[in-house]
Simulated scan of single mutants.
Amino acid sequence: MADDIAHNPFLNWYAGLVKIGGISSHKKENLLLSDIGGRRFSIGVHDGKPLLACLKGDVEALKGIRWSRALINIGAGGRDWIALKSKDVRRDRSEIAQGIPAPRSPWGVKGTTKQPLTLWIPVTSGRLSVWTTDEVEMPEKLCLGLMGRKKGAPHLRGAPFMEISLITKGTT
């Protein structure tokens, strides 16, 4: 079990964020990043869809979770957020058939009980409001991609590595 946990990219990512103060709170299935953790992400647009770009060290951790949907939440707790939701963070059964170890949550829990997770990423207030106006049609997907830097401004490096169904909530 310890070996499985040591090679879990999401758990290693989480531990790294804890070490640098990147986690604001973790209660039940809600994992809230602090401003420090949120700085690992950048907001943009790719092919008319919202883009959440991350640092190179975050890609494997985010790819390691089966995200079921993304949420743009404006004004929750006086902040704007992008939330990535997973109905069950344990590994997929098809991975077991390929010889990948038995299903576990990133927290090392075995069993058949689903392990939901919502990763809340803080966003500078106002950055998401364009997606919640009547003037712009809300896209159905959020793209996740690798962030690059060019003269200090973040940009997408290559094509997005994932698209997630997108909804909005809590516009205030």
Rank of each mutant, 00 (worst) to 15 (best):
P139N: 12
R93D: 06
I167E: 15
D4I: 14
L156K: 08
G99H: 03
A159I: 05
E95S: 08
P50M: 11
N30A: 10
I167N: 08
R40E: 14
L156S: 05
G44N: 06
S165H: 08
K87A: 13
N30G: 00
I43L: 12
G37K: 11
H26F: 11
V136Y: 07
K110P: 08
P160S: 06
L31H: 06
G148N: 04
S34F: 04
K169I: 09
I100Y: 05
A76Y: 15
G152V: 11
D3N: 06
K114Q: 05
R104D: 03
L142Y: 10
G126V: 00
T124P: 00
R90P: 02
I100R: 10
S68C: 03
L17P: 05
K114M: 02
L52H: 14
W81N: 08
S24P: 00
R91Q: 13
L146A: 02
R66G: 03
E163D: 15
L52A: 13
N12D: 13
D35L: 08
K151S: 14
V59I: 14
G64F: 06
P9D: 04
S25Y: 01
G44K: 04
G145S: 12
G21C: 07
L17D: 03
R66I: 03
E60H: 06
G158C: 08
G148S: 07
R127L: 12
